[in-house]
Design a protein around this nucleic acid. Structure first.
Lengths: 182, 182
DNA sequence: TCCTAAGCGAAGTGATGACTCCGAATATAT
DNA sequence: ATATATTCGGAGTCATCACTTCGCTTAGGA
């Protein structure tokens, strides 16, 4: 691939992430304009709009997976688990698209996104198990409901009108539920 | 208004609720077809698609408000609060539109929907206060975060793939957090 | 430097969907 | 029963958007 083509591909992805971050209903022209390329260039790199959306989704899921993996290597398992939860919800609070990505992670269309979603869930699952072994999270919680809570909290955060204090109090209540029953 | 006109208005609203329940991106033609009327008839009763959506949203919010008011008159305040929570989440689990309605309730466009949203939140707020007075819900929880949790749980429920056991375990964790700290 | 294949952008194309126009149909008051 | 004002339905219109075509440009090897 020629150097200018690679550059454009990067620019398009970056622009798409920003544009679709606001609304996935945005047009391909908008992405092209923000990227500073022609429409045809967008379609040359991503043959359909769905494939472009998929690429953006995959990127986001991979980043979340990396964050989880990074935290897993860190200090306290309990801290790592809640830290990840915090970070995801914080991001989702300002970017609706992240929340949507989480929902889509379960039943993602397309091979790349599906795999990225699976890896992210896998990494989050490991954070959960370690936190449970350390006693920071109740042992009777299973992955599906904890993931559902992550998705829900992300959506709930966007409903707070971006009020950080409300968001933190919401999470405090949720975390009380997730912690080990005495 | 002529009797046939009123009939059609009803039919259109019912059809719209069903069609937009699947996706708000559905076309007005779909609504007209399901209602068994011409497209023009839909637009005569609801001049724009947004107004039609608004009417559906208002209807849903009013129903939720009625449910809350009904439960408030019932027996135990704690039971009433969690019962409402259960019902809303259960409905949202099968109808994504309800979850969206909850989100929109905060910043609804249009006068009718805005007011219906406010009334629903008001009714839910009363359930919360009573439950707190009775000691069933922790006293330090304020309305905004509890509402955010309701919105979040509704969204989370749709992410469980409609698995009722997962949904119930998710709610159990959440309710543990909402109950009075001893 | 020059050649050429890879890449580019702007002007299409066709489909879709919100919304309108107007002649036909019909409810209802007399 | 009849008149007429109201309502109806389907065939438009117009804008938007995903996607294509094609003549021009340019990167980068010889």
């Amino acid at each position: 691939m020629r150097a200018d083509a690679r550059d454009n591909r990067e620019r398009i992805l970056t622009a798409a992430e920003q544009v679709f971050g606001r609304s996935t209903a945005a047009s391909t022209d908008d992405v092209a304009k923000l990227a500073g390329v022609g429409i045809a260039t967008v379609f040359r790199h991503f043959p359909t709009k769905v494939e472009l959306l998929e690429a953006v989704l995959t990127l986001r899921l991979q980043r979340l997976r990396d964050t989880a993996a990074e935290l897993a290597g860190g200090s306290d398992p309990g801290t790592a688990f809640f830290e990840f939860f915090d970070q995801v919800v914080a991001e989702a609070g300002s970017k609706l698209a992240i929340a949507e990505a989480l929902v889509a992670a379960g039943s993602a269309p397309g091979e790349h996104a599906r795999q990225a979603g699976q890896e992210m869930r896998q990494a989050f699952g490991e954070l959960l198990v370690k936190a449970q072994r350390s006693g920071a999270v109740r042992a009777d919680a299973q992955f599906p409901e904890v993931y559902a809570l992550l998705v829900g909290a992300s959506r709930g955060a966007t409903a707070t009108g971006l009020d950080l204090e409300v968001r933190d109090r919401m999470l405090a209540i949720l975390y009380d539920g997730l912690r080990q029953r005495r």
